[in-house]
Amino acid sequence: MSAGDPVNYGEAIREGFVYLLETYPEVFCIGQGLWSPWYVGNTMTDLDQLFGRDRIIDTPVSELACTGAAIGASLFGYRPIVVHPRMDFMVLAADQIINQAAKWSHMLGGQASPAVTIRSIINRGGEQGAQHSQALHSWFAHIPGLRVVMPTTVQDARDLLISSVLCDDPVMYIDDRWLYERTAVLPAVTERPLEDEGPKILRHGQDITVVGVGHSTWLSEQAAQHLEEEQISVEVIDVRVLNPFRSDIICESVKRTGKLCVIDGGWRTAGMGGEIIAAVVENIESGVLKASPVRVTLPDAPVPTSKALEDGYYPSVNDVIDAAKKLVRHG
């Protein structure tokens, strides 16, 4: 592959890994399936051959201890990336993520900070069901001390990984298998501090602000294209960084459009969708919103297996189109 060729989202993640492993000897990867093409798609192919199995460590079936070990190594000059090839299994590591990594700096007086990146993959569809399909990003966004990023674009897939690993705080980097086939031509890497990153306008528009996180942003971009044909101009904002969450760009957009629709591939109750709406409502003057904000989310039910139920479970491009159209025309 030469510079200028398009790469897909999965390959872009791998480019991020290659950049980090080539540039920083203190970076290593640890997790289940890292020597196998089975677990992480095309995102880490042959890294063990390129960088050695001492730096690309495939582990026993121990999510909790491996996450803890990465946190421990990060306290002594290393920048480990823990990989949880399926987010559901990362729940087994919750103590180390929520009670340890997120708190370490604060509870010890700011004297030590785990510079660890915890990568997890949302891997849905195909009748995988309740324990193989979850998107738990809102849960981690609730925890002070964690930084939570969800790349939507191909460039962010690479660049947010690099920013995450170079950050001195614990970062949850969450990618989504449903984005792996997106393609783009990428510029050369420029390192950017993660604390400078936040929500970004991906598409400008005047009639409505549609905000997405991760894969939902891609649905929003596709919906915006359709809606343009119907003379509805949509501003699409990608949240990118869920925690610490900054609402200023979204608020400014809503001040221009007067309408807000949030798309989130997580559950409705106490989710990121509700948080985004609340932050906007709190931070704009009353009267700015010309209609009540709307959120499109998963229904509050575990993920079903049967195709018949699964088909209607995940928000689709059409769901986004319908919600936005309704808000613009009748809101």
């Binding site: 909790l64 201890a65 491996c66 996450t67 803890g68 070990a69 990465a70 946190i71 421990g72 190594a73 990060s74 306290l75 002594f76 000059g77 290393y78 480990p80 103590d95 180390q96 009670n99 340890q100 708190k103 370490w104 509870m107 010890l108 030590a112």
Partner: peptide, 19 residues
């Protein structure tokens, strides 16, 4: 570092040893 979650520093110490 010490923390009161029972067993929590055991894997962290393993990581310190790995480093």
């Amino acid at each position: 570092g010490s923390v009161p979650l029972v067993g929590a520093t055991i894997p962290i110490a393993v990581g310190a040893a790995l480093a």
